[in-house]
Computed example of a mutant assay.
Amino acid sequence: MPPYLDAFLNSTLLVAVSEIGDKTQILALILAARYRKSVPIIWGIFIATLANHALAAWAGHFISGLGVTDYLPWLVAIAFIVLGLWILIPDKVDDDETPKRDFGPFLTTLVAFFLAEMGDKTQIATVFLGAKYDALFAVILGTTIGMMIANVPAVLFGDKLLSRIPMQWVRYTASVLFIGFGLFSLWQVLS
């Protein structure tokens, strides 16, 4: 498989699955219920995610070039295992992450999503994906599409969709994917 395709597919899958039930997906539900205008909310999510994940992937790529290449594969593998365990902890939207002032659906979504992603597990995963793969554009595109795969249905279908999906199983699946990705990365380091 070409390296850019591997980076794209892994980034998309890891973020899409781990984002289900995440605080930003809950935020998408709140914004959809508040504004009832899906198109500007979806565009806000897309642009905020693209900007946030571009910065995160670039940071990971930058860190990988700092001469820590001997330790970086170990750090990346361990980070994915830790993220896999972190996913098992359910997310809630903090009151300080929901906007107090109303700037309309697009701008409110853009700002709220960008801020809610800061330090979130999908942003941290994007940093490590950017460090792992040289195909930076594929990582950015993959993580952004992964976020859209998880959040657009939340905006469009909201509670109807999420009430049918057992969040516990989604978290377990995402956890297994991250831990599996980390273990596979460890196996690659050791081989």
Rank of each mutant, 00 (worst) to 15 (best):
S38C: 04
S38M: 03
V39Q: 10
V39D: 01
V39A: 13
P40K: 11
I41N: 00
I41H: 01
I41F: 05
I42G: 01
I42Y: 04
I42K: 02
W43I: 12
W43D: 11
G44Q: 03
I45M: 12
I45C: 14
I45H: 02
F46C: 03
I47L: 14
I47V: 08
T49H: 09
T49F: 02
T49I: 12
N52A: 13
A54P: 03
L55Y: 01
A56R: 02
A56G: 13
W58F: 14
A59Y: 04
A59N: 04
G60K: 02
G60N: 11
H61Q: 01
H61T: 03
H61Y: 03
H61L: 07
H61C: 02
F62C: 03
F62D: 14
I63N: 07
I63L: 15
I63W: 10
I63V: 12
I63A: 15
S64F: 02
S64R: 02
L66D: 00
L66Q: 12
L66A: 03
G67D: 13
V68Q: 13
V68H: 14
T69Y: 15
D70T: 09
D70Y: 14
Y71W: 15
L72F: 15
P73A: 13
P73F: 14
P73I: 09
P73G: 10
W74P: 10
W74L: 05
L75E: 02
A77P: 05
A79D: 03
A79S: 13
A79H: 09
F80M: 09
F80A: 14
F80S: 07
V82R: 08
V82Q: 08
L83V: 15
G84C: 01
G84Y: 00
G84R: 03
L85P: 11
W86V: 09
L88Q: 05
I89K: 03
D91Y: 05
D91L: 08
D91V: 06
K92C: 06
V93S: 06
V93C: 07
D96L: 12
E97W: 00
E97D: 00
E97S: 01
E97C: 05
T98R: 15
T98A: 13
P99K: 09
P99F: 08
P99Y: 11
K100S: 13
K100Y: 04
K100E: 08
R101T: 07
R101W: 11
D102S: 04
F103S: 12
F103H: 14
F103G: 08
G104T: 06
G104E: 08
G104H: 05
P105R: 12
P105Y: 10
F106L: 15
F106Y: 02
L107N: 12
L107I: 15
L107Y: 10
T109C: 12
T109A: 13
V111E: 01
V111S: 04
F114L: 13
F114A: 09
F114Q: 11
